[in-house]
């Protein structure tokens, strides 16, 4: 028993685990809306865009969370506006806006070669270096996003299902897009330090599509995806302690394994059901 509880003796592990569970749940919940909007690539793209914002914030000596958050928010708004107004496909809009934003970061790094700050943590995550302040930021973002999703549940559901028609029924679709861009930027900023730019996309998409395989109900999909995110966040942290592998990568690999397992079970169940139908015809 002592062996099992051993990791919790370390403060860095406790901080990291709380942050990973919160970030897992946050990405899992947001992922449902992203996957259903057909914008699975946005997590990947926006996390790169935010990296550009982080570099700009550093160069301009402004707060990382403020600079990168504002940058991510504007990038998400620009993507939404490009999709809705210019009728460009989401993947194309994401590709243009986010790679341009990322390129700004790369250009600044190459221009100011005297960088003293390492962006490794932003790129690959550093869950073991999570401070109590980082945990407070993640917790704050989680509470705010949960409140936003709770009180806008019906409007966000309609705007996700049928954005063109939702407006006719009184859903302020422009405001919903802005709110969603804000939620997305906040989620990515809060997750960046924990999972890293390279892992965020998977943490957003994989729990949601795993949940989609299991249910045809939006409510249950939201619940399952949030739970899968939180559970794999916890299990990934725990496992990484013993196998001595990057925590972000372990979380994502666990999510991928859960997806593979679910896919296999669902496929098996479908083939069994088909065989039963054929037997009874």
């Amino acid at each position: 028993m002592d062996v099992l509880l051993q990791p919790f003796a370390f403060e860095f592990f406790r901080n990291g685990t709380v942050a990973a569970v919160l970030v897992g749940a946050l990405c899992g919940a947001i992922g449902v809306y992203i996957v259903l909007r057909g914008m699975s690539y946005i997590g990947h793209g926006l996390s790169h865009a935010v990296f550009g914002g982080a570099v700009v914030a550093y160069v301009m000596s402004i707060n990382f969370y403020l600079g990168a958050g504002l940058w991510g928010f504007l990038a998400a708004l620009l993507i939404n506006a490009t999709v809705r107004r210019a009728r460009v496909n989401p993947d194309a809009a994401i590709g243009v806006v986010t790679t341009a934003s990322f390129a700004v970061g790369v250009a600044l790094i190459s221009r100011y070669r005297n960088f003293t700050r390492s962006f490794d943590a932003a790129l690959f995550g550093n869950v073991l270096g999570v401070t109590p302040q980082d945990v407070a930021v993640v917790a704050g973002v989680t509470v705010l996003v949960a409140l936003a999703l709770f009180f806008n549940y019906k409007r966000l559901l309609f705007a996700t299902f049928d954005p063109e028609v939702a407006g006719v029924y009184g859903v302020p679709t422009g405001w919903m897009d802005t709110l969603f861009a804000l939620i997305l930027a906040a989620t990515i900023i809060a997750s960046m330090q924990i999972l890293g730019v390279t892992m965020i996309a998977a943490a957003i998409v994989v729990p949601a599509i795993t949940a989609r395989l299991l249910t045809d109900s939006f409510d249950r999909m939201l619940l399952f995806s949030t739970l899968f995110g939180a559970l794999t966040g916890f299990a990934g942290m725990y496992l990484s302690f013993y196998v001595d592998v990057s925590s972000g990568a372990t979380v994502v690999l666990l999510q991928a394994a859960l997806f593979g397992l679910t896919l296999a079970v669902v496929a098996k169940r479908r083939s069994l059901a088909q065989r039963l139908v054929h037997t009874h015809v």
Partner: peptide, 17 residues
């Protein structure tokens, strides 16, 4: 999209709800 008939019809009440 993962919605039932009841979910879709409830969307029509979004203004009054």
């Amino acid at each position: 999209f993962p919605v039932t008939v009841e979910h879709v019809v409830l969307m029509g009440r979004v203004r009054e709800t």
